[in-house]
Amino acid sequence: MTTATADEFETHRPRLFGLAYRMLGSADEAEDTVQDAYLRFSGADRGAIEYPAAWLAKVVTNLCLTRLTSARARREQYVGPWLPEPVVTSDGVLGPLESAEQRDAVSMAMLVLLERLTPTERAVYVLREAFAYGHREIAEALELSEANCRQLYRRAVQRVGEERARFEPSPGRQEELVRSFLTAARDGDLGGLEKLLAADVVWSSDGGGKVSAARRPIEGRDKVFRFLAGATRTFLAGVDFTAVEINGATALAAWEGDTLLSVTTFDVRDGLVARAWAVVNPDKLDFVRRQLARA
C-alpha cells in the first residue's frame, strides 16, 4: 500500500472503529476488525472502489456480522453476565457526542440492549441510527432488499425502544448522581449509597470467570445494598475511586495503585440508580486502561 493510500485509510479509521465497536461491543475486536479492513483495502483494486467510505463501511459491517455469529456461541459459554467493554469517550474515540441522543447511542445501556438483536438487525439499526444511512444504502451494504431492511429496522426499534423509554438520559443529573455515589464509596458511607438506589435497581457484574463477581444480576435495593456492603468490607480497602467519562456518561473507575480493578456505569431513572454495570474482567479493561494511561 502506498503512503497516500495508507493516509487515506487513516482518515476513515475513527468512523470505522466507531461502527465496529457499536456492532461488536468490544473495543479490542473492533480494533482487529478495522485492521482486517485495512488489509483488504491495501490489497483491493483501487480503480474498482468508487466511494472508499462506503466500500470500507460495507467491509467492516460484514466482518462484524461474521464475528457476531461466532461470538454468540462463545457468549453462551461465558461465565456470568456478558457486558460490553467500556470505552473512554472524552477523547473522541467514538466521534463527537454533542447531544443527549448521541451519548445515549453509545451508552452501556444501549449496547446491552443491542445484544438482544440478531446480528443483521443490529447492523441495520446501527447503520441507520448511529450513521444516518438510508435504507437503500443499508440494503447495498448488507446485500439485502430495501423492504427487508425496513422490516428489520422496525423490529429492532421496537425491541430496543420499549426498554429505553423507561430511562431518562439526563447527563447533568447522571453526573451529579455518580459523583454522589463516588463520595459515598470513598467515605464508606453505606447509608448514603443505599439512598441512591432505586427500589428495583439491578446490578450486573462481568468477571468472566477471571476474578470474583456475581454470576447473576442482583435485583432489588436490599440485595444490591447487601452486595455493596459486603464488597466494601471485603475488597475495597486501599481502593481509589475516580470519575471518568465512559460511553458518553460519567462512570466510576476503581484503582488499586496503577491497576484498574473495575469500571462501573449507571443508568438513572427518577434521579436514582436503576441499573449498574460493573466490568471487572481484566481482559475487558485493557483498552480503557490504555486510554486512561495516555490521558
Rank of each mutant, 00 (worst) to 15 (best):
G271Q: 06
E31Q: 15
A231I: 03
D36W: 03
S170P: 00
L182E: 14
L193Y: 02
M1I: 04
W55D: 00
Y153W: 15
V211S: 03
D104T: 08
R289A: 10
A213D: 00
F131E: 10
T118W: 09
T2A: 10
A4N: 10
G95A: 07
Y133H: 07
R136Y: 01
L65M: 12
D258E: 14
L113H: 08
R116W: 07
P81Q: 11
W55R: 01
G172D: 14
R269Q: 15
R136G: 01
P86I: 03
G134F: 06
R46F: 02
F17A: 05
A73E: 15
V106M: 04
F181L: 08
T66I: 11
G92A: 08
A27C: 09
P171E: 02
A141C: 13
E76I: 03
M1Y: 08
E143Q: 14
D283M: 05
L193V: 04
G208D: 07
D91V: 09
A278H: 06
L236G: 01
E29Y: 03
Y38F: 09
D286F: 08
W55G: 00
L182Y: 11
D91R: 11
R136V: 08
V273T: 00
L261W: 10
V263G: 07
G207R: 01
V126L: 04
E163T: 10
E168L: 13
V106I: 11
F287L: 01
R216A: 05
L19T: 03
D206L: 02
F241T: 00
F41E: 00
F241H: 02
T2F: 14
G257P: 12
K58Y: 10
R221C: 01
D28G: 13
S212F: 13
V224K: 12
E245R: 04
T5R: 15
L63F: 15
R166A: 14
S90Q: 07
L68T: 02
D36K: 03
E85R: 11
A73S: 13
L285K: 06
L260F: 11
L127H: 02
F227S: 13
S99R: 11
S145Q: 12
T5Y: 14
A4K: 14
G172I: 02
L68Q: 12
Y51C: 07
R150F: 06
N281C: 13
R155H: 15
G209H: 01
E175V: 04
E168C: 09
D206S: 11
D32R: 15
E98C: 06
G18W: 02
E140V: 07
S204E: 15
A274F: 01
D240G: 07
V112N: 14
L228S: 06
D270Q: 12
G238Q: 13
E163G: 03
Y133W: 11
T242F: 09
E121P: 01
S262H: 02
Y125F: 15
P171C: 05
E29H: 03
T183G: 08
G192R: 05
V224I: 06
A274E: 13
E85Y: 10
S205L: 10
R159F: 05
